[in-house]
Design a protein around this nucleic acid. Sequence first.
DNA 1: TATAATTAACTAACCAGTTAATTGATAGGA
DNA 2: TCCTATCAATTAACTGGTTAGTTAATTATA
Lengths: 213, 213
Amino acid sequence: MSKKIQKRDAEASKALIITHAKSLFSEKGYASASMDELAKRCGLNKAMVFYYFKNKKGLYEAVMREVLVEIQEAITEENKTHSKPIEELEGFIRTYARYACEHPYLPALLLKELSDSGAVFPEMLFTSMRQLFALFSDILKRGEEKGCFDNAIPMILYFMVIGTLNLMVTTKPLRLEAAKLEDIDLDTCAGCDIDEIADYIIIKIKQMLKEPK
Amino acid sequence: MSKKIQKRDAEASKALIITHAKSLFSEKGYASASMDELAKRCGLNKAMVFYYFKNKKGLYEAVMREVLVEIQEAITEENKTHSKPIEELEGFIRTYARYACEHPYLPALLLKELSDSGAVFPEMLFTSMRQLFALFSDILKRGEEKGCFDNAIPMILYFMVIGTLNLMVTTKPLRLEAAKLEDIDLDTCAGCDIDEIADYIIIKIKQMLKEPK
DNA sequence: TATAATTAACTAACCAGTTAATTGATAGGA
DNA sequence: TCCTATCAATTAACTGGTTAGTTAATTATA
């Protein structure tokens, strides 16, 4: 069943649209992303977008679904390789960090959605985010039961982790620019790579969860 | 010099536009905010917007400037009442939290800007954010010199604080909705007020900055 | 030959920004 | 106190460009 190269390939066209839509939406945001430009980037006729995805919202929905499923699967998969809560937590943070850095459309799209309270597309951001948060929350809960974590409020800690990582990824160009100015002595971590950042967050989160003795 | 009520009042019209623009931009984002709708909300003619602010970008600039100056002044003012770094840090977090909660357009606008790397209006977001960050950074630096803080990377800690607070504010409606569902046992802190959240963050940040002995 | 994929050309709505005309406040002179 | 010239504030109506979405015809494939 190997696919031969053909002029017409529904799957290929669909995938092409999603790929370019991911970057377009994350660059411009939902409202400013033009379907004309998307078609041009894909090298397809604009009508194809509506043929496959009904309308702009439908395309955005498909994009968000793919993005969220991807990150969720990556993290869930990685999580299986650990048994101790501390290792699970470390894995969660490191995997999210790497994934966000390699797929920078994710933090951009997520922050845009979260700053809108899901104005464009509530329901599914909702379910997917809830599932990811549930995984994080469970790790902390198990850790508390085993006595290795103390005084954890999962919701706040969750936003601490993904909020910080998302911002560190999306503001990278901004921080690089700020580093060039030398009027005030300010370290914007412009040179830091994502693993260093993840390591630092891990250390600090661990410190936060240490039981006071 | 008391202003009498008159049919024509430039200052009042200008202020009216800014006020409604703040909420419109934070609700819809820059691209989706329509100047027609803004004029309707203000009860003014659309041409007034362009008469006072030249163009949409000019209005957005004015809005962002006001918002950022407001928060910066609030924090700088509060900061003067403290002398010890730990108290300064506490004050910074608590003031930002309260201000963000009382003016929810701030977190919405900030997250939108930061997720774009300042695509709409870079220069001044830049300077203002840098000044606010400089204040935060200085507090940590002084704390480290006095030996009360350890292993602080200001940029990451800054995003940890404002990232978490911004997200907790903007996602409040989302978290309230999530709390109604009971399929999985998940605490979304729907009932938490901003002071409790700020207190928790303060405790955790303090723990993170404790010198290891 | 039937059907799925693709296209060019179109529409109707919207939107930022302009313009020229009009209205209201006000200060100065008679 | 009234008249009026001036200028600032306000308006309705318009423009040109863009956008999401449609349609009917065309081409490739099995």
